[in-house]
């Protein structure tokens, strides 16, 4: 019998390498989202590619602005927490043989992590002790109630179809047909949710320019940099989770599985960020009613259809 602790220690280098790869993948996905946003805004591709590094260099040198009696602890937790959430989401995605954090409950963990964003964005808005930030934080929670329920029910559909909450099993169950094709409503609701927790596109009201960037108000320097990077990273991470959930995981011709996963994640991130850049930001109340009265019932109906098909097929 081997010593379990020595076993764990032997696996440490592989885990460390995996963590570095996950971090690298998040950065690449976040950069892809940023480039795509630039292109959508009408910038040339080279200028869009240089935008993120240039902004990073500028913000790293910028001094910190403070506000009167800001709750600095909560403010910083909210801002610096976004990017790690994206890294954890990526760690759930099965790339090649296995995920960095494999498990039988990957779908539920992905959901739990995107809910953490609720807390972080509100804390970001609250902590600054500024009216604009507070408005942004409250807007986000209202929108979160609107996008999260359709997102949750959208996650149910692939889980029912694959009879598993394990992302790897869900990905493998799509060998014949991608779930995005035969459960399109769930796929759309999921993508709306990704825009929601990345605070982008039509759901960007919490950081709207008409409230001085809302939850981002009063942020400066590295604190602003990590929040901006975090939003792009969350969009990339959400797209990466969609690969095993809806886009067949690593299935594809010629190339190895891992390459397909990364490729699909990059393409979906780029498309989503481009769409987010082209679509107008809607005000909170313009979104609440469609999200609750149209999208949510449609997604529940989608779950019903999937469940009936699965039961009648087996």
């Amino acid at each position: 019998m081997t010593d379990p602790l020595a076993d764990q220690l032997a696996r440490l280098p592989a885990a460390a390498l995996g963590a570095v790869l996950a971090l690298g993948l998040v950065l690449v996905l976040a950069w892809t989202a940023s480039v795509s946003r630039g292109v959508a805004a009408g910038r040339a591709v080279p200028a869009s590619m240089a935008h993120a590094p240039a902004e990073a260099a500028r913000l790293l040198r910028q001094g910190r602005r403070t506000t009167l009696s800001a709750d600095r602890l909560l403010w910083r937790v909210g801002g610096w927490g976004l990017f790690p959430v994206a890294v954890l989401l990526i760690a759930l995605v099965p790339v090649g043989e296995t995920a960095l954090l494999p498990g039988s409950l990957g779908v539920v963990w992905a959901n739990a992590l995107d809910v953490v964003v609720w807390a972080l964005v509100w804390l970001l808005g609250w902590g600054a002790n500024s009216v604009a930030g507070l408005v942004g934080g409250y807007r986000f929670l209202a929108l979160a109630l609107g996008y999260e329920l359709p997102l949750m029910f959208a996650l149910v559909a692939p889980a029912i179809a694959a009879s598993s909450l394990d992302l790897a099993v869900v990905a493998d169950a799509q060998s014949s047909l991608w779930y995005a094709v035969w459960m399109p409503v769930a796929f759309v609701a999921y993508l709306v949710g990704v825009l929601g927790f990345a605070v982008s596109g039509p759901l960007a009201a919490p950081v709207g320019s008409e409230v001085s960037d809302g939850a981002l108000a009063e942020l400066s320097g590295p604190d602003l940099l990590v929040v901006r990077a975090g939003r792009h990273a969350l969009m990339g991470a959400g797209a990466a989770i969609a690969v095993p959930l809806f886009l067949g995981g690593g299935s594809g011709p010629w190339l190895p599985d891992a390459v397909w996963v990364v490729l699909k994640a990059l393409l979906l991130t780029g498309a989503l960020a481009w769409a987010a850049g082209r679509l107008p930001t809607l005000r909170t109340h313009q979104l609440m009613e469609p999200l609750w009265t149209i999208l949510l019932p449609l997604v529940v109906l989608q779950d019903l259809v999937v469940a009936v098909l699965v039961v009648s097929g087996s």
Partner: peptide, 21 residues
């Protein structure tokens, strides 16, 4: 109790975010 554990995390973060308001 993996499922109960992750559900407690999910529900309580969500609930506290709303409760703060």
């Amino acid at each position: 109790q993996s499922y109960l554990g992750v559900i407690v995390v999910l529900m309580m973060v969500m609930e506290m975010a709303v409760m703060a308001v």
